[in-house]
Design a protein around this nucleic acid. Structure first.
Lengths: 205, 205
DNA sequence: TGTACATCAGTGAACGCGCGTTCACTGATGTAC
DNA sequence: TGTACATCAGTGAACGCGCGTTCACTGATGTAC
């Protein structure tokens, strides 16, 4: 009762400190904050526990180990990305959809560099986690719709993506990575947009 | 004299153990081996020293700190990449140069995943190192030649790369990353080549 | 409505680990005279 | 050709650190009767 008084907590009910209330959610938020502030190499499970005002052993009850937490963070990242791509898609004129989604993808990467990075980093995640996989597929799905012009993806059996959609994705992803890694620092600020303008050329529209 | 007898060393002269002979080169090789065996997260300066048969303090005389060594490794990686791209460029028929360079780039990434990764990882390197920067530019230069069809890059003042060349590079780089990160695992093995075939479409040839 | 009890979700101390870096040092090398 | 000496390139012990994870535990909650 006497400690953690100044720690903000998400609690459904009263002030009882022993049970946190929603530790799972709180830990994911803490992890996001650490990534944003300190980057990928600055993340640690203990720090996430510390920020949540909880003992270092607590996270294991919810996530098993450090990969478990990061996998949840990555899945949430994909969900956020999906939302932002969807939102860009809906706002765009029919002719400029692919470009709009492209800009949103790049913007997401620039705004959340460490999060974007761990979302793809095998060693840090449990890449077989169903939630993570589903979230990743959903994001790709939006991109695919933007590239093919389909309104809603037909709910048939899982399909192989076409090479032109993957090519557009690869270009976008590469652009994002090169930007984050500083490889385009010497180019003008308009270069990225020019590259995105070229996307329809490969997507074949 | 009595220790490190079974450690392979690169020595110019005699058997004297106290001075290594070419510790700088040996440490870079050791680091490459660690990256290949254990990946990016498995790398440590101490392990590099251990493998070279040298005390943990020795590397600091040559590289200052861990970033120094990794920067040298990254620069060497770029030189190796440049060689392989050049070699692919020279072997290819005039019409298929860009594709050939693309395949070589992807192949390099697949053969040296951890090395390829650190070559671009800001946090781990001193990205202002002149040797590193020059090596990176040289690699890009080959790609640029392949994309534009110029035989030799004209030695004029440093230029802004065209957006179409950067787009081709981004596509290739994204393809490499997505492949390494397992994002294309469910696609057919021929998908990557199909994507590479699309490169001339953006490079505008 | 009250009580017994199982289960859940925490504690906090302790573990062993490998790491990067510093330190005072010393052996080997090369150069000036 | 011989010697003194500065410089270079190592040693190895020690530092403090933060980490992930384990452990026996305990407080709070919810459910069965």
């Amino acid at each position: 009762m006497k400690k953690n008084l100044n720690t903000v907590k998400i609690q459904a009910v009263a002030d009882s400190t022993y049970h946190h209330g929603d530790l799972r959610v709180a830990l994911v938020s803490a992890a996001e904050a650490i990534l944003a502030e300190r980057g990928v190499t600055g993340f640690s499970l203990r720090e996430a526990a510390r920020r949540t005002g909880v003992s270092p052993a607590a996270p294991s009850h919810h996530f098993g180990d450090s990969r478990g937490l990061l996998t949840a963070v990555a899945a949430k990242g994909f969900r956020k990305l999906t939302d932002q791509l969807n939102s860009a898609l809906q706002k765009a004129t029919k002719r400029a959809r692919l470009e709009a989604v492209g800009e949103a993808y790049l913007e997401f990467a620039k705004r959340n560099p460490a999060l974007f990075t761990i979302m793809w980093t095998r060693d840090l995640l449990d890449q077989s986690d169903p939630d993570y996989l589903a979230a990743g597929r959903a994001a790709f799905n939006v991109l695919e719709r933007a590239a093919t012009g389909e309104e809603i993806r037909v709910a048939t059996a899982p399909h192989r993506p076409s090479s032109s959609v993957v090519a557009a994705w690869a270009m976008l992803h590469g652009l994002a990575r090169l930007t984050l890694d500083g490889a385009l620092d010497n180019a003008g600020p308009e270069l990225a947009s020019e590259v995105i303008e070229l996307m329809p050329k490969i997507a074949g529209r």
